[in-house]
């Protein structure tokens, strides 16, 4: 990929920035977390369902941030960023998920409570 280096601000990654997208991301992410806040304050459902729902809302917030703020997609400029993130996500899920699962089972079976 060749780039005109005489005007650095015209670099493809800088060109992705747009005030409209940043503002959309700002409003959408705050709204999603606002819904989480309301559900928790109202104790709108059982504890397990509530945890599942706010987890999904956190996931949607993450997607909104990645799309509107980080501008991730499969274009030539961004595809390596997107691919490396996709390869990284299983590591995050495994490290948090397996640890939580392991200790949940341990807690249930051997710890005093």
């Amino acid at each position: 990929m060749s780039v005109d280096n005489t005007k650095p601000w015209e670099h493809p990654e800088v060109s992705l920035s747009s005030a409209g997208k940043y503002f959309t991301g700002y409003v959408v992410t705050l709204a999603l977390l606002g819904v989480s806040l309301l559900l928790v304050r109202e104790h709108a459902m059982t504890a397990f369902n509530l945890l599942a729902t706010i987890s999904v809302l956190a996931f949607l917030t993450t997607i909104a941030k990645l799309v509107f703020l980080f501008h991730l997609d499969f274009s030539e400029t961004q595809r390596w960023n997107t691919l490396t993130l996709m390869l990284n996500v299983p590591l995050l899920i495994l490290s948090v998920g397996l640890t939580s699962w392991m200790f949940q089972v341990l807690f249930r079976r051997v710890m005093m409570h």
Binding site: W9, S15, G25, Y26, L30, L33
Partner: peptide
């Protein structure tokens, strides 16, 4: 949770302001 949400609004506003830095950069 309520104080945490106030913190969320503040932090996300700072993030949005940084987005505007990038927009101004783009327009030199």
């Amino acid at each position: 949770p309520l104080y945490g949400y106030a913190e969320t609004v503040v932090l996300f506003t700072s993030v949005f302001a940084y987005g505007m830095v990038m927009v101004k950069l783009r327009h030199d």
